[in-house]
Write a protein that binds this DNA or RNA. Structure first.
Length: 804
RNA sequence: GCUGAAGUGGUGGAAUGGCAGACACCGGGGACUUAAAAUCCCCUGCUUUCACCGGCGUGCGGGUUCGAGUCCCGCCUUCAGCACCA
């Protein structure tokens, strides 16, 4: 067999990409005959920088699964689209005076071209683009449905305001007190904002995690973010005559409440300002607290501050004791009732506050030393100084006290969540217009469904104004409209939706992307949902993933989609770092451009390296030498074409190695252990080189195993060597279990746990017959000369350990 | 502070409680070549030794076990997420 030709990645990659595009081989089939498989990657934001080496890591990983599933006989929908609304595009447009839609088109075209060069098996016929009016028509439609069900509302409230982007942010978008996107300072600002009531789905979002198969850290992070806690609300009588309601998770410690703390913004303060003998001091504290940004509030959280409300006292409902009431910014208006009962003996924050201001500390759960530290253990303590609760465990006391409070009408069981409603307004141009009209007579009126999509108007300027209004506000022609209800003059909403809107349901649109009667056909939804496997970044766990689960569950509740949960399985990739181990960024100068790598080594080598570089879920530094090593491996694979022999089938001396490889690769792909799968194929290739030649069938198996990672070179070799039909149409290889059985196996012989020699033993040697066998074994006898073994342990196929 | 993950050669990393360092990268040697590159073959944890043979080795200190990178207890360090949520 002759040597064929040089390995030329550029030529063969182009050839096969063209072939797949022309034949539509990789597109989903419209027939519903086969079992379906729906893998998903997070659709990219088409930034001006182009593709990052991080994108192909997730894409290749899911492409491998998609390609393997096709060979396993599934109808696979592996889609791609563009999450194209967003600030960077808008900022670029502002700076250069180009319409964001023009910028978006250019960026999308560039991204598509870059992705196509990498040979992903996306179904490009189903592309979606969140900025396409035919798409955002349905984003707006979902918003109107949410409004209809009372889940969208407009509210004056303090929001997180990025001073640099001049835009309101959801809690999820504030990281360490600064804007997630630009790092600008975030302050609190009262603004009228559209809100989505995700809080009413808090419990459903927790419960739904039971029905899906997310990696543990994703489920945990979602649960923590939703932050469910169980406790009670309790009323304390005030000397003013009204009641102060608090939320506590430790109602069992009620006897130990020695003072109360309310948030500086609590309405009670202003209500009773006349009674306060130190109102000036209180007002000064309030003002100081209001001025602090969230960042400052958290930075200073070690040192407690506060002011007593002199002139107001509260009464402990159980002991009848009068206790003082303080204001402090460690109590947040936005959680619970904005007021707490302080039990310094059993809460760290209350303890620190009490120590600072000399407030009494009364132990009600025995087990610690409450003068030195709060005792917060709820497992071991026993109630003391607590009347009828004395002697009970914390758990029993909780139940007893809540029953008592409910019976006496002093309080009740209560579940709280940390999750806040979703701030859905952005004072920006490049987003979906919110299809609502404000009418002086009718209030907020939804746009009728037949007027969707409400398109973005053409404007001259894209900058938000300094007072925080959207650029759309300046478009009087567009803003002034007739009320859909009464026909009178009215104004359109000028805020737009956040970037998370379009990405909350895009996986539904892929299923039926060109439908103009519904967001997708119910029959199609029934066949394709849920997404079987969704891979993405950990950074989206509390943002995109939670939001889209919320929308999907809502759509389920109103009968639009057939499944409660959108995604069956969620996995996560690690970041690719610069070669210096730091995050890749322009300013650090450690950015690797995928195009350069493809130019030098080819797409297959690039894909291979991204999968080989290390454990898939871990952050890994990029090493160009490592990528070159992967190219070297493909060169070696290519040369196998010149090592073909005349043999048929799998020869005896390769059967074992090939089947070990088939088994390892098949299992490892499923567990995303791509690095060890590739290592197994490298080992097999090394073995083939040792042997000096391979048969067509042997090479065929290797090519097929490698195909999901390196689709171009493998198809080319398959064709060039006349091995069989296109690899995409061949069934995935099965393990021949018989070939995995060897006659003898080398084991290690240890003395007291140290390896002394290796011997070959029959592979079917059992523990029971081991002693007899080794008694006659020359090597073992030699090792034991003059020594008496106390014990022998034989682990079949592994080792023999002799204890002296 | 809380939660989670992780610490293994010069580097990236492998190892259902069973031969630590698979597979690569880097480095070294050899073959081929006028030469270089590429390619092929060999070596490559540290340490003693001419060599054989040894000794030591998975962040640190204990423990369980015939046997621990892996399990348990106590620390240290790094990374990620959350951060006054009562």
């Amino acid at each position: 067999m002759g040597y064929f030709k040089e390995y030329d990645p550029a030529a063969i990659e182009k050839k096969w990409q063209k072939h797949w595009e022309e034949t539509g081989t990789l597109n989903a089939e419209s027939s519903h005959d086969k079992p379906k498989f729906y893998p998903l990657i997070e659709f990219p934001y088409p930034s001006g920088q182009g593709l990052h080496v991080g994108h192909p890591r997730s894409n290749t990983a899911m492409d491998i699964i998609a390609r393997k599933r096709r060979m396993e006989g599934y109808n696979v929908l592996f889609p791609i689209g563009w999450d194209a609304f967003g600030l960077p595009t808008e900022n670029f447009a502002i700076k250069n005076g180009i319409h964001p839609a023009v910028v978006t088109k250019k960026n999308v075209d560039h991204f598509r071209e870059q992705l196509k060069r990498l040979g992903f098996s996306f179904d490009y016929s189903r592309e979606v683009n969140t900025t396409d009016p035919a798409y955002y028509k349905w984003t707006q439609w979902i918003f109107l449905k949410l409004w209809e069900k009372g889940l969208a509302y407009k509210s004056e409230m303090p929001i997180n305001w990025c001073t640099s982007c001049k835009v309101g942010l959801a809690n999820e978008e504030v990281v360490g007190g600064v804007c997630e996107r630009c790092g600008g300072e975030v302050i609190r600002k009262v603004k009228s904002q559209w809100m989505l009531k995700i809080t009413s789905y808090a419990q459903k979002l927790i419960d739904g995690l039971e029905d899906v198969n997310f990696i543990e850290k994703v489920s945990t992070q979602q649960r923590n973010w939703i932050g469910r806690s169980e406790g009670a609300e309790v009323d304390f009588a005030l000397t003013t005559g009204d009641k102060l309601r608090v939320y506590t998770t430790r109602p069992d410690t009620l006897f130990g409440a020695t003072y109360m703390v309310i948030s500086p913004e609590h309405p009670l303060v202003e209500k009773h300002r006349a009674l306060l003998t130190n109102y000036e001091e209180v007002a000064a504290y309030k003002e100081a607290a209001a001025r602090k940004s969230d960042f400052e509030r958290t930075e200073l959280n070690k040192d407690k501050t506060g002011v007593e409300l002199k002139g107001i006292r509260a009464v402990n409902p159980l002991t009848g004791t009068e206790i003082p009431v303080w204001i402090s910014d460690y109590v947040l208006m936005g959680y619970g009732t904005g007021a707490i009962m302080a039990v310094p003996a059993h809460d760290d924050r209350d303890w620190a506050f009490a120590k600072k201001f000399g407030l009494p500390i009364i132990e009600v759960v025995a087990g610690g030393d409450v003068q030195n530290a709060a005792f917060t253990d709820i497992q071991t303590g026993t109630l003391v100084n607590s009347g009828f609760l004395n002697g009970l465990s914390v758990k029993d006391a909780k139940k007893a006290i809540i029953d008592y409070l409910e019976e006496k009408g002093l309080g009740e069981r209560k579940v709280n969540f940390k999750l806040r409603d979703w701030v859905f307004s952005r004072q920006r141009y490049w987003g979906e217009p919110i299809p609502m009209v404000s009418c002086p007579c009718c209030g907020w009126v939804p746009l009728p469904y037949d007027q969707l999509p409400l398109k973005l108007p053409e404007v001259e300027k894209y900058e938000p104004t300094d007072d925080g209004e959207s650029p759309l506000a300046a478009m009087t022609d567009w803003v002034n409209t007739a009320c859909p209800k009464c026909g009178g003059p009215a104004r359109r909403e000028t805020d737009t939706m956040p970037q998370w809107a379009g990405s909350s349901w895009y996986f539904l649109r892929y299923i039926d992307p060109h439908n103009d009667k519904a967001l997708a056909d119910p029959e199609e939804l029934k066949y394709w949902l849920p997404v079987d496997w969704y891979n993405g970044g950990m950074e989206h766990t509390t943002l995109h993933l939670l939001y889209s689960r919320f929308w999907h569950r809502f759509l389920y509740d109103i009968g639009v989609v057939p499944t409660k949960e959108p995604y069956m399985k969620r996995t996560s990739h690690g970041m690719i770092l610069g070669s210096n181990g730091e995050k890749m960024s322009k300013s650090r100068g450690n950015v690797v451009n995928p195009d350069d790598v493809v130019d030098e080594l080819g797409a297959d080598s690039f894909r291979l390296y991204e999968m080989f570089m290390g454990a898939f879920d871990q952050a890994i530094p990029w090493q160009t030498d490592g990528a070159r090593g992967c190219r070297r491996f493909l060169d070696r694979v290519w040369k196998l074409a010149s090592m073909l022999n005349d043999g048929n089938g799998i020869s005896k001396d390769l059967a074992y190695d090939i089947n070990v490889c088939v088994k390892k690769v098949s299992e490892d792909y499923e567990q995303m252990k791509y690095n060890t799968a590739i290592a197994a194929m490298m080992t097999l290739v090394n073995t083939m080189y040792q042997k000096g030649s391979v048969s067509r069938d042997e090479l065929g198996v290797l090519l097929q195993l490698l195909n999901p990672v390196a689709p171009h070179i493998t198809e080319e070799m398959n064709e060039m060597c006349h091995i069989g039909p296109e690899l995409v149409r061949k069934p995935w290889p099965q393990v021949d279990e018989k070939a995995l059985v060897k006659d003898t196996v080398e084991i290690a012989v240890q003395i007291n746990g140290k390896v002394r020699c290796r011997v070959n033993v029959p592979s079917d040697l059992t523990r029971e017959s081991a002693d007899a066998y080794f008694a006659g074994c020359e090597e073992v006898k030699r090792l034991l000369e003059g020594k008496t073994p106390k014990k022998q342990i034989y682990v079949p196929g592994r080792l023999l350990n002799i204890v002296l």
